[in-house]
């Protein structure tokens, strides 16, 4: 294997997040190392998606601190996280429905584009060259995800599994160093899940992208993750390598229930 797990790049320390009286996350700490696949699991409502939202700045935790690549964050905005190389996909597909697959993936590259609205109005010289240069990159992503035949289809017309793949493509197009995937396999059949697993592993392996994954399919999680965090009711109840987590009594209790 080409990839080698490196140092800690993202450190969450004592994160607490609440909405009014509802405590979504309580004093959670964990870290993510470079190039690893880190999964966050837990029953519904455990605070997994909130955790991702904290990582890329959609939510601001009331307590705790987030350190990304040695830099402590204060009131992060999502577009700044994007600038630092954090991309993400959403649990409910968040594609731009009115646009084609190419245009959707092209939006993923917007941070790397320098032309302004005046260049675009003329669409000559610099703007045209930029458009072509980025189109090449987008085509690489399209090749990687094997969606050549639907590149010009409006995403609203695509089946669910392909939409999920396009969303992964949009995140990939930004060439992120860390990708947050929120249930990339939810609602898929076995073949689609296998495809998606392969893409995630390939991304991790070929581009060295660090991946933070939320997933409910335990088979998948235990297979592809390097380390797993388990949340329940906003609290961390387990953290470690898949085998370790699997045998953790608290985790078993959370998933299977306990007899009292």
């Amino acid at each position: 294997m080409a990839r080698e797990i490196g140092d800690v790049i993202l450190k969450m320390e004592g994160i607490s997040l609440s909405f009014g009286g509802v405590k979504a996350l309580t004093n959670i700490s964990f870290d993510v190392r470079e190039h690893e696949i880190r999964s966050i699991i837990g029953p519904n409502g455990a605070g997994k998606s909130s955790m991702l939202n904290v990582i890329n700045g959609v939510y601001h935790p009331q307590e705790g601190q987030v350190t990304f690549r040695g830099e402590v964050r204060r009131d992060m905005e999502p577009h700044k996280a994007a600038k630092q190389g954090i991309a993400r996909t959403f649990q409910n597909i968040a594609l731009f429905k009115g646009m084609s697959v190419i245009d959707n993936i092209m939006t993923g590259r917007n941070l790397k584009m320098k032309c302004n609205v005046f260049h675009h109005a003329l669409h000559w010289g610099k703007a045209r060259a930029e458009e072509i240069e980025h189109r090449k990159k987008v085509e690489e992503v399209i090749d990687f995800l094997e969606i050549q035949n639907i590149r010009k289809t409006p995403v609203g017309r695509l089946p669910y599994g392909l939409q999920k793949r396009v969303e992964l493509g949009r995140a990939l197009a930004a060439e992120p160093s860390m990708m947050l995937l929120d249930e990339p396999m939810a609602g898929m059949n076995v073949e689609e899940k296998q495809d998606m697993c392969r893409f995630i592993l390939d991304v991790n392996d070929q581009f060295g992208t660090t991946i933070v994954l939320i997933e409910h399919d335990m088979g998948v999680v235990m297979d592809i993750s390097d380390r797993v965090v388990v949340l329940d009711y906003g609290k961390k109840i387990g953290d470690g390598e898949p085998d370790e987590v699997k045998n953790n009594p608290d985790v078993i209790a959370a998933y299977l229930g306990t007899s009292h």
């Binding site: 994007a82 731009f96 429905k97 930004a174």
Partner: peptide
């Protein structure tokens, strides 16, 4: 227009 949260996460201001 289509999804402002996703747009922001991608880095669109």
């Amino acid at each position: 227009r289509d999804m402002d949260v996703a747009a922001e996460v991608i880095g669109i201001r």
